[in-house]
Simulated assay, not measured.
Amino acid sequence: MPPTIYGIKNCDTMKKTFAWFEGAGVAYGFHDYKKAGIDAATLARWCDTLGWEALVNKRGTTWRKLAPEQQAVADRAAAIALMQAQPSLIRRPVIDFGAGGLVVGFDPEAFAARTA
């Protein structure tokens, strides 16, 4: 089963990721969570594997635009709710390699290790 790349189509990091997979000749699926949303079960699975802190992008403009009470994410449930409401907060890309695990961010070495 090909890996699934989760993210937002027009993000520069996403474009680098697509280019890497295409250059390596690796087939992939794409889930645009800006358009299709992201379900709580998927986010919960990611949080169980990576921790919610690894998924929330606190450097982006979406984070900076949040009210202070929204930025006061205290736990996994609050983080999941916030990421569902604001999918642009999820770090990009998240790549699900199935049994090969998850990779967050542009990491060509991790991609190569999981697609070899």
Rank of each mutant, 00 (worst) to 15 (best):
K65E: 15
F18M: 04
C47K: 01
G60Y: 08
E22T: 09
I38R: 08
W46D: 03
R114D: 05
V26N: 06
P68D: 12
R76F: 11
A110L: 04
D48C: 09
A112E: 14
W63S: 08
K16S: 14
T17L: 06
L43W: 02
A116F: 12
Y28G: 02
I38F: 07
E109V: 12
L89H: 04
P93A: 07
L102Y: 07
F18P: 01
M83Q: 02
A67P: 08
Y28T: 02
G101M: 00
T115C: 15
D75T: 10
E53N: 15
L102Q: 04
N10I: 13
G105C: 00
R64I: 13
N10L: 13
Q84Y: 02
K65T: 14
K34P: 09
M1H: 12
K65W: 13
G23F: 03
G100S: 05
V94Y: 00
W63G: 06
C11I: 09
P3W: 02
G37H: 07
P87E: 04
A40R: 14
K9W: 12
F18E: 03
G7T: 05
I95C: 12
G7C: 04
L102H: 01
D48K: 10
G29T: 13
A72I: 12
Q86C: 09
L66D: 07
A77Q: 14
E22A: 13
G7E: 02
I5Y: 03
I8M: 08
K16C: 10
L102V: 06
D107T: 09
R45M: 12
A36V: 08
I90W: 04
A44D: 14
G101H: 03
V104D: 01
G23D: 03
P87K: 02
G51V: 06
P87D: 04
A44P: 08
L50K: 10
F106I: 01
K58A: 11
V103W: 01
G51L: 07
N57I: 05
F97I: 02
R76Q: 09
T4N: 04
A24S: 10
S88R: 06
Y6D: 04
T13E: 12
P3K: 05
V56C: 09
A99V: 06
T62E: 03
V56Q: 06
G25W: 05
G98F: 04
Q71I: 11
E109R: 13
Y6A: 02
G51P: 05
I95P: 04
G25N: 09
D75Q: 05
R45P: 10
P108N: 06
G51D: 07
H31Q: 10
V94F: 02
A85K: 10
G29M: 10
W20F: 01
A77H: 12
W63A: 08
